[in-house]
Design a protein around this nucleic acid. Structure first.
Lengths: 174, 174
DNA sequence: AGTACCATGTAAGCCGTTACATGATTCT
DNA sequence: AGAATCATGTAACGGCTTACATGGTACT
C-alpha cells in the first residue's frame, strides 16, 4: 500500500502530472521506492475516485495535472504519524553484500570493486545535489535527506575499501 | 529472480531444510530480503528440478534437507560476479524519511523519535551479535557485515538526533 | 521527414503476501 | 491432555514489471 502514499506525498510537495511523478520516482526516490508509469496512472485514477487528489488542469499533449486535496493531506499525515511502519526492505544489493563472503578472494575483490565504483559515483552525484541546494534561493526542506545519503554512502565507501584491502591480503597469502 | 539466489546462497553456507531457511531469512536477511515459507518451499522444488540443489536427507516430522549442487554453486557464482546488479530498492522506511519534512515540526519530531527508538534497539541487537561473533570458536566470515550494519545504524541514529533537535528548535519559534 | 521526447493508457504474467490446510513432536 | 513448536504444502489475491499501444510536440 506504499505506492498510494508515495504518490500522495509527491503531490503534497507540488501538483504534478503522472509523467512528472514518474520522473520524480526515478530521480529522487529510486533509493527507496520505485514505480513505473504503468503503475502510477492507474493509481492516480484510484486516488481521484477516492477524492484524495483532484484534477486541477489539463495542458498540451493531453497532460493532466493533479493536486492533493485536504482529505488527501489528512490521509497522508495519518499514515506518516499513526500507521505502524513496515521496516522490512527489499534490496538486491544488500543480498549480494550478504553473500559475497562466499566467493573466493579474487572474485570477492572484483565484486567489491564494482560496488565501490558505483558508490563513488553515487557520492559524486549527491555532492552535486548538495551544492545546488546550498545555492538555491529558498532553503530546501530536503537538504537533510541529501546529507544523510552522503553520510551513508561514505560509510559504505570506506567499508568497501577495507574489504577490498582484506581480500587482496587474503589472495596474496595463497 | 533474487529469491532463487538467496536460497542458493544460504544453502551454499550449509545444507538446510525449508523450515530452517525460513528462519534464516527472518533472522539474518530481514534487512535486505525477506521470504515466507509459502515462497520458499515451491522455490526449493523448482531448484531441485533444475538440479541446482539436491535432497540429501529426510529427518523427523517429514523434514527434508537440501544441499547445493556443483551446478548450483556455478550458477550462484555467475550471478554474484557477472550479472549486472539491480541497485533499485524498496524501503517503506526510506519513503517515510523522504516524506517526513512535509509534516509540521511537532509531528515531524514525533516520527523521528519513533524511528530513533527503533534504530537504537537495532544497534543494541547488532552489538550483541558482534560480541557473540568475537567469542565464537571459528572466525566468522560474516563479521564485517555486522560491522557495516552497526556503522550505518550509527550514522542514522546521529542524523535522527540532529533532526529531532532541529524540529524542537523549529517548534519553539512558533 | 525523421528523431527524440512528452504524455497517457491497458494487458499478461510473475512475484509476493495472506490465508487455508494438515500432521508430527516436544514440553508442561 | 493441551499448547507450543516443528515441518511442509497449496490457493486466492494483490502489487509490480514488461510489453503492447497510441498519439502529440519540438527540434534538426
Amino acid at each position: 500500500m506504499s505506492l498510494r502514499y508515495a504518490v500522495l506525498g509527491l503531490l503534497a510537495r507540488r501538483p504534478s502530472t503522472g509523467y512528472e511523478l514518474t520522473q520524480t520516482f526515478d530521480r529522487s526516490l529510486r533509493t527507496s521506492w520505485y514505480a513505473r508509469h504503468s503503475q502510477i496512472y492507474p493509481e492516480l485514477a484510484k486516488l481521484e475516485a477516492a477524492n484524495l487528489v483532484e484534477l486541477v488542469g489539463q495542458g498540451a499533449r493531453g497532460s493532466k495535472t493533479y493536486a492533493i486535496t485536504e482529505a488527501g493531506r489528512a490521509e497522508l499525515r495519518q499514515w506518516l504519524v499513526e500507521a505502524e511502519p513496515d521496516r522490512s526492505q527489499r534490496s538486491e544489493s544488500g543480498l549480494r553484500l550478504f553473500l559475497t563472503p562466499l566467493l573466493d578472494p579474487t572474485d570477492r575483490q572484483a565484486t567489491y570493486e564494482r560496488d565501490l565504483a558505483h558508490v563513488t559515483q553515487e557520492l559524486a552525484a549527491l555532492e552535486k545535489v548538495r551544492a545546488e541546494v546550498r545555492t538555491a534561493p529558498e532553503p530546501e526542506a530536503f537538504a537533510p535527506q541529501v546529507e544523510l545519503g552522503i553520510r551513508i554512502n561514505t560509510v559504505l565507501r570506506d567499508w568497501l575499501r577495507e574489504q577490498i584491502q582484506a581480500s587482496a591480503d587474503n589472495a596474496d597469502h595463497e
